[in-house]
Design a protein around this nucleic acid. Structure first.
Lengths: 189, 189, 189, 189
DNA sequence: GATGAATGAGTGTTCATTCAT
DNA sequence: TATGAATGAACACTCATTCAT
């Protein structure tokens, strides 16, 4: 008696195509691409786009939401590796930040679009807490190892993620990482 | 043979009013204020606005340019104090970064507007080099004091300035500064 | 040899639901309700709605048609009472007009929708002639009584019905009736 | 020191052209003409149209307002003639109603458009009261002559004007007038 | 036969920019 | 030179209708 009706197969396909097209178009042509252009890139009519996302804001929020899912997945995978002992927790934190800075580069225009439209909730809240949970554990692990400063919190990570120089070339992003890291890790002595 | 004709007094006045109005309006009403609104706030007609700045991009670039002037002034003042020995050079660097993060908060919408319009050159190049020069000397001073890591450059400072969390409340900006500083300063031991 | 195939029971039910929903929605939400909204209110999908009424115009015409049926019924009932002598024919004419003005108030948005769509034939012609016939006899009766002016015709009644102030509150509609009546009834002397 | 600045001559001209075009287009092509079509018919760009009337509602309201001006003028002229004794006051009332029914025929689609957009104030209030005043005096005059029933008010006239069969051919409108008049004038005996 | 996703022309409105006054 | 009216391409969004499932 679930209220959640399964979507028709083609509707699912279209939703995917739209989301991908939106991501691609915003990335390629800037945060102000028109809905028509996104629809065309997705190979659907505008009406279809609006059936899936009643508002441009909704569409962009969904795109951001997908990104949050990816980030949460990454955070959980990092935690997984650190828990098992495959790698040190600090290294996972650093790797995570590095990958986020990397992937955010593509995501930059999307973030700009979201800001321009006043997108609020970045998609599903459960994904955000999934990410937060994993990162919290990861930090705790690294702190137990004595590798990360005791006062560092998940919010600090979010703050750094938010300020990553997403529109800069790779070497700059690497340098940024180097500048950032000492603030998180414990001093050498 | 100079082509630069002195501006008529009222033209100068108008330019000032427009620049101030643009800054105020963008800050107050977001990066997407219309040219008409800016003109009205400046007490001139749109036509006048366009006589001074042929393009919205030009206008925003000029506003950004003014900000660069202020930053350059600050940098030079900081250097002055450190040279005279009034204060330690590191402290001036930190203070400078802190003030920039602070002032950038107001400036945030302007930056967003600039980005949205693809503003390239941030105004007068001489101001940029004025700032760069002062900051370079300041860093050198601090490095001579052994307070700032030897590999830190002016570009690092610019990178950090560019990624300051300008749209966050003061405590967050302070925390960001705390996270950032260890990457610049020499380790305690 | 009749081409008219009896409708399947559920098709009949759907037709009813759609007609009722259309009436209700147009009345409640104005003449511009969308087909989707009507379909949803009827508990069917748009496709079903379009199976029954190939065009919005057709749907609205059908709704109007139902109203004509009700009016025809009323006219015949009025005639019935007057014929039997239960009441004076004039009073029945007046009562009829009054009730039409009354019911038209609900019907107002439907009329507006019909006009907006250029609905032509108001449904079944037989109903119109049923109404016309009854009203003609009723007028004749009242004229025989000397109560209604000899030159008054059925078309006059239609004209008045058409111009009833359907979107005005009850007292206004009553006042309108008072203004209208002297033109139909015989002068007191 | 008047705040009302005189409009530029060409702006005035454009305003006129727009108003006329709006009237013409709505009359000719129905209440749902697009703003673009109106603009084109007026020989201006849409932007110009929107500079003069920030909203379609505003435009239609202005068109209706012009009609109110015409009606008010007519009412005052009628009163003038009756006051001077050129004609009987009743005749002026009848003539006024007749002319309104006549002119309203053209005006019908405009009224529909106004209703569809929820136009509230029919333009300038002063024109409405100008009309009301003149009609009140005219009615009083005719009542003094013993030609119009004592209970008739200006609102009655408005009610009848509002219900005139504006979309019917001339003979029908004439017949309507005949049906309406006895409700206003004193009975023959 | 019913469903509801897809279509796409059309709508009202905005805004950077131009140009007659 | 300043003014502000005019321009018109562009945009987000709607809705009657069609058609694959």
């Amino acid at each position: 008696m679930s209220v959640i009706r399964p979507m028709r197969a083609d509707a699912v396909r279209n939703r995917r195509k739209i989301l991908d097209a939106a991501n691609a178009q915003i990335t390629a042509r800037g945060p102000d691409v028109g809905m028509d252009e996104i629809a065309q890139a997705a190979g659907v009519a505008v009406g279809t786009l609006y059936r899936h996302f009643p508002t441009k804001t909704d569409l962009v929020a969904a795109v951001v939401g997908e990104y949050v899912v990816a980030v949460a997945d990454d955070a959980q995978a990092s935690l997984g590796r650190a828990s098992v002992g495959t790698s040190r927790a600090v290294d996972e934190v650093v790797g995570f930040l590095s990958r986020v800075a990397e992937s955010s580069a593509d995501h930059h225009a999307v973030k700009a679009a979201a800001q321009g439209l006043g997108v609020e909730g970045h998609g599903d809240e459960s994904d955000e807490s999934r990410a937060s949970g994993a990162l919290a554990e990861l930090i705790a692990l690294a702190q137990a190892d004595g590798d990360i400063r005791t006062e560092v919190t998940v919010d600090d990570l979010y703050l750094l993620m938010a300020t990553a120089p997403t529109d800069e070339p790779a070497p700059v992003r690497q340098r940024w990482l180097d500048l950032i890291l000492p603030g998180i890790t414990t001093p050498p002595c």
